[in-house]
Computed example of a mutant assay.
Amino acid sequence: MTGQEEQESPRTAQATLIGLYVWADGQWTMGLGRLFKRLRHAHGIIDLQAAVHLLQHEERRIVDTLNTRTPRLLNMMEQETLREARTVVRRIPPKPPTPVTLLEPPEPPRFDFTMPLGERATMAIHTDLRTELKDIRARILRQHDDLYKLTAAGSATHEVMANGDTIKDAQRTMMRDLLTHGVTGFTDTAGRRWQLSSYVEMAVRTAAMRARNEAHLTVMQAAGITLFTVPTHMHTCPVCFAWQGKVLSVTPDAQADATIEEARAAGLWHPNCEHTITSWHAGDPHPDPGEWSERDDVLWKASQHQRELERDIRAQKRVLAYSGEPLMRQQARQRIRGYQRQLRDLTHDTGLLRRSHREQPDLGLRR
C-alpha cells in the first residue's frame, strides 16, 4: 500500500479513504477464512485458542496500517474542502465599498475572503470522522475476543442439543454469518448493524458533503446572503422531498419557510443525503415545491430495494471469496445469480441505473 501513498492527491482522498477501510474489511475477512479452515481440523479448545491468536496478529497489522494512513487522508480531505470553499469565494462579486464619514464609528472587522474557512468548513470531517474511524479501529482490535466467545459458545450449544447438528455444522453457520457481515457486531448509535466497509462509505461521504455545505453556507453568509433554497434531487426520500423548493434562512425570517436548523432537525441532510443549498434573494419567485407522486414513491422504494440487493450480492461474494467450504461456496454462487437476476429485472422495469461497482465487495475502489 505504501507504493500508492505518494500518488494520492486531495482529489482522490475521499475515495482512497473509503478504499482503505474496504481493504481492511477484506483483509480481516480473509483472516476469518483462514481461521475457519484451521478450525475444520481443530480438536478442542486449545486449537481454537491458537487459531484465534493468529487472527489477533492479523488485526494488529490491519489496524497499524489504518492508524498510519487515516490521519493523512483526513487532512487531505479537509484541505480539499478548503480549496473548494475558496473557489466559491472567487465566484462571489465583491461588495461595493461603504462611504466613510469622519463621524462614522469604526466598522467591525470585515470577513476576510482570502482566509481559509478552517473550523466551520472542516468541522464535520474533524469531529465525525476522526472520532468514528478511531472507534472502528478500536472495534477491530476486539474482534478476536468476540470471535472466540461466539465460536466456543456456538460449538458448546450444538454439542448438547439433540437436533442432529454437529460442531462442524455450528462452525459452518457461524462462518457464514461472520463472512457475510464482515466485522461482526459493529452497531451504530441507532442500533443498526453495518458491514465495516458500508459504514465507512456512508460516514465519509456524509461528512464530506456536510463539510462542503457548511463551507458554502459560511461564505454565503459573509457575502450577506441569508436566504437559501433546496434544489431538486432525483430519487430523493420522502423526508427530503418535502424540503425541495422550500426557502430556508439562517435565522428566523418571515420570507422563509423554516430555518436551516429546523430543516436539519426535521431530517434534511440525513446520512447519505446529497442535497445542497443555493442562494435565494427577496423578490425571486418561490420555487415550486411539487407533490409526492405515486411515481416518486415507486422509484424511491425501488432504489432502496436496489441498495438492498447490492448489499446481498456483496455479502455473498465475500462468502465465495473467503470460504473454503465447498457447500457454502456453491450456495453463495446460487444466491449471487438469484440476486443479480432480481436486480436486472428491477432496473429494467423501473429505468434505474445499475451500478455494477456497488455489487463488488470492494465497491469498485482500488487501493
Rank of each mutant, 00 (worst) to 15 (best):
Q334W: 04
I260N: 00
R130C: 11
V200R: 01
P10L: 05
T259K: 03
K134V: 11
L352D: 10
I260C: 00
W243G: 02
I277C: 03
S155A: 11
T278N: 12
L346C: 07
P326C: 06
T236H: 03
H144Y: 07
V89D: 07
Q306L: 12
Q195G: 14
Y339S: 10
A242V: 09
V319Y: 00
P93R: 07
R69S: 12
G31E: 04
A170M: 03
A203Q: 13
E294R: 10
Y148M: 13
H286Q: 15
I225N: 07
T114L: 11
V319R: 00
E274H: 15
R210H: 09
T350S: 10
L54M: 15
A156K: 11
S9E: 14
L129D: 01
P289A: 02
T251R: 14
L299K: 04
I18S: 03
E80D: 15
L32W: 00
V239Q: 11
T12K: 12
E104L: 05
D135M: 13
A124T: 05
Q4S: 12
H357R: 12
N163M: 01
R329Y: 05
V319G: 00
T131N: 12
A152P: 09
H357F: 14
V88N: 03
L54R: 13
T114W: 06
L117Q: 05
T218N: 12
P116M: 01
A332L: 07
T226R: 07
E310P: 01
H57T: 13
L20V: 10
G267W: 07
R358A: 04
E359H: 01
F113E: 01
R212L: 10
Q7N: 12
A203K: 09
A51F: 01
D297E: 13
R137Q: 14
I336E: 09
R329F: 02
T206P: 05
R210S: 10
T157R: 15
T347W: 06
Q304K: 08
P285N: 05
D128M: 15
L343D: 04
H275Q: 01
P109C: 02
N213S: 09
G185W: 05
G44K: 08
L363Q: 10
P116I: 02
T2Q: 10
R90P: 02
Q143G: 06
D288V: 05
A121M: 00
R142E: 12
L103S: 14
L363H: 11
V22F: 07
R130I: 08
A263M: 02
I125E: 00
D297A: 15
M175T: 11
I46G: 13
L346D: 04
A211Y: 01
W243N: 03
R142N: 09
L133G: 00
S279I: 08
R110Y: 08
C237Y: 06
L248Y: 01
D25C: 04
T70I: 03
R69W: 15
